[in-house]
Amino acid sequence: MQHHQNPSQTPFSQDIRIKGVFSTTAPQSVGFGHTKRKVIQNVLVYAVEEEDGKISIQSLNAHFMPTGTVKMISRDNLLKNYLPEPDVYISKVYPAMRKVAKAVARGERHLRNNETFSAEIEFKTALRIDEENIRATFGLGLSYLARGDTQRGGIVFRRLVRLNAAFEPGHKHMFNEFGISLRKNKMYPQALKYYARARSISGDDENLFFNMARTFQEKGRVSLALKFVSKALGINPNLIEAQKFKIFLENRLAKKNGGNS
């Protein structure tokens, strides 16, 4: 079994990365009207030292999973204003994170085997503990779309479009796969909105443009498809699929224009 460093044992020297649960006190308002008063409450956060030495902190939800907005603070701020809570990390947070990771891994394995109902159960298990888990959200949507459940797939699509983190470079293969599934289910407006969202966050990408071209072609918008496949080849001229697709589109357009003359 892999040994995980106990945060209470770290001397916080500059060569050791900080990772664990910390607590701090924060004033909170309780009560209403004339009974309203300020109380000092203990707040738990999950802290991870990034490569640049800054500390990212996130609140813990009711299931002890890091959730919500990531806030960056300095190492000095952490050590001055926060207390390490190694017991909470070891007994609550680490087991919760492990449970989510295992459920997601099982779900993805079921999905690869086309066992979409079993996959759905696993992804929902993960999302009950960590409702913002990107991989579980993608997985749930893919489970629905794999069996043609476009109504539930559409619900997950709307949720994903709101999550900025879904379109980070590390999730590129997942958002490409999800967009392809939307297209295959003939959810063309959703697929195009989804790709536009991905592009606004992750920037121009040859696979993104190629997938947009495929979507436009299936919608019957051949000229637009040609425009986007050309953009894909502008980024990566060696994309063989795009080269073949461009020839196919040019032939279709030539036939269409020839038929109109």
Results as ranks from 00 to 15, higher is better:
residue 49 E to F: 07
residue 54 K to P: 01
residue 21 V to M: 04
residue 235 I to Y: 02
residue 212 M to R: 05
residue 76 D to W: 04
residue 257 N to K: 13
residue 172 K to A: 14
residue 30 V to N: 04
residue 236 N to I: 05
residue 249 L to Y: 09
residue 171 H to F: 15
residue 244 K to D: 12
residue 19 K to Q: 08
residue 47 A to D: 04
residue 35 T to I: 06
residue 110 H to D: 00
residue 26 A to T: 05
residue 184 K to V: 01
residue 108 E to D: 13
residue 233 L to K: 15
residue 211 N to S: 11
residue 192 L to M: 09
residue 224 L to Y: 02
residue 175 F to Y: 08
residue 222 V to S: 12
residue 74 S to V: 00
residue 128 R to P: 01
residue 202 S to W: 00
residue 2 Q to H: 14
residue 255 K to P: 02
residue 13 S to C: 09
residue 18 I to M: 08
residue 157 F to S: 04
residue 112 R to G: 05
residue 15 D to L: 07
residue 114 N to V: 05
residue 85 E to M: 15
residue 156 V to Y: 05
residue 230 S to E: 15
residue 154 G to K: 12
residue 153 G to F: 07
residue 50 E to A: 14
residue 5 Q to P: 12
residue 32 F to G: 03
residue 216 F to Y: 15
residue 193 K to P: 02
residue 47 A to Y: 13
residue 189 P to Q: 04
residue 114 N to G: 03
residue 135 R to F: 11
residue 95 P to G: 00
residue 51 E to G: 02
residue 181 S to F: 14
residue 103 A to V: 02
residue 140 L to K: 10
residue 204 D to S: 14
residue 94 Y to W: 15
residue 90 I to A: 09
residue 138 F to D: 07
residue 229 V to H: 09
residue 2 Q to L: 15
residue 215 T to C: 13
residue 232 A to P: 05
residue 70 V to W: 04
residue 44 L to M: 13
residue 107 G to L: 08
residue 186 K to F: 09
residue 46 Y to A: 00
residue 217 Q to D: 11
residue 96 A to I: 11
residue 40 I to Y: 01
residue 89 Y to F: 15
residue 67 T to V: 11
residue 176 N to C: 08
residue 124 K to N: 06
residue 23 S to C: 10
residue 148 G to P: 00
residue 41 Q to R: 12
residue 220 G to F: 10
residue 66 P to Q: 01
residue 83 L to S: 15
residue 83 L to P: 02
residue 144 Y to F: 15
residue 52 D to Q: 10
residue 207 N to D: 14
residue 152 R to L: 11
residue 172 K to W: 01
residue 56 S to A: 14
residue 18 I to G: 06
residue 154 G to P: 04
residue 39 V to S: 08
residue 128 R to L: 10
residue 243 Q to T: 08
residue 27 P to F: 05
residue 251 N to T: 11
residue 51 E to Y: 04
residue 74 S to K: 07
residue 196 A to C: 06
residue 197 R to S: 12
residue 84 P to Y: 01
residue 17 R to I: 00
residue 67 T to W: 07
residue 213 A to G: 14
residue 179 G to C: 07
residue 123 F to D: 13
residue 49 E to A: 08
residue 108 E to H: 09
residue 243 Q to I: 09
residue 226 L to S: 04
residue 189 P to K: 00
residue 229 V to L: 08
residue 170 G to V: 14
residue 235 I to A: 00
residue 169 P to S: 06
residue 244 K to Y: 11
residue 184 K to M: 10
residue 173 H to C: 02
residue 156 V to I: 15
residue 254 A to I: 00
residue 246 K to L: 01
residue 118 S to F: 03
residue 217 Q to W: 03
residue 175 F to C: 01
residue 68 G to E: 03
residue 241 E to M: 13
residue 236 N to M: 03
residue 119 A to N: 00
residue 190 Q to C: 03
residue 143 S to Y: 12
residue 156 V to P: 06
residue 18 I to K: 06
residue 259 G to R: 12
residue 113 N to P: 03
residue 131 E to H: 12
residue 221 R to M: 07
residue 238 N to T: 10
residue 217 Q to C: 05
residue 57 I to Y: 05
residue 242 A to D: 08
residue 245 F to N: 02
residue 212 M to Q: 11
residue 64 F to M: 08
residue 261 S to C: 07
residue 155 I to E: 00
residue 62 A to H: 03
residue 184 K to C: 01
